[in-house]
């Protein structure tokens, strides 16, 4: 039966992992602007990556 205790314990740890993930995502500002990312993901990668490369070099 002790295996059940273990699975419950692990399932809780996994759930906790998601909670921490959620809190991290809020903290990092992912919920501050919910309109921008929807648009940003549609940008052509070629041009903007070219621009960021310039910046890095």
């Amino acid at each position: 039966m002790s295996v059940l205790f273990m699975t419950i314990f692990f399932s809780f740890i996994i759930a906790l992992f998601f909670l921490v993930g959620f809190i991290w995502s809020v903290k990092s500002g992912q919920f501050d602007d919910t309109d921008g990312p929807a648009v940003r993901m549609l940008f052509d990668d070629k041009k903007s990556s070219h621009a960021t490369n310039n910046n890095k070099s």
């Binding site: 919910t34 648009v39 903007s48 960021t52």
Partner: peptide
């Protein structure tokens, strides 16, 4: 606005908050 660094290389990063 997020590609401003192409025009002025002294800009490291620009990030738009569309809602605000």
């Amino acid at each position: 606005l997020e590609n401003l660094q192409t025009i002025n290389a002294a800009i490291f990063e620009s990030r738009v908050n569309f809602s605000k």
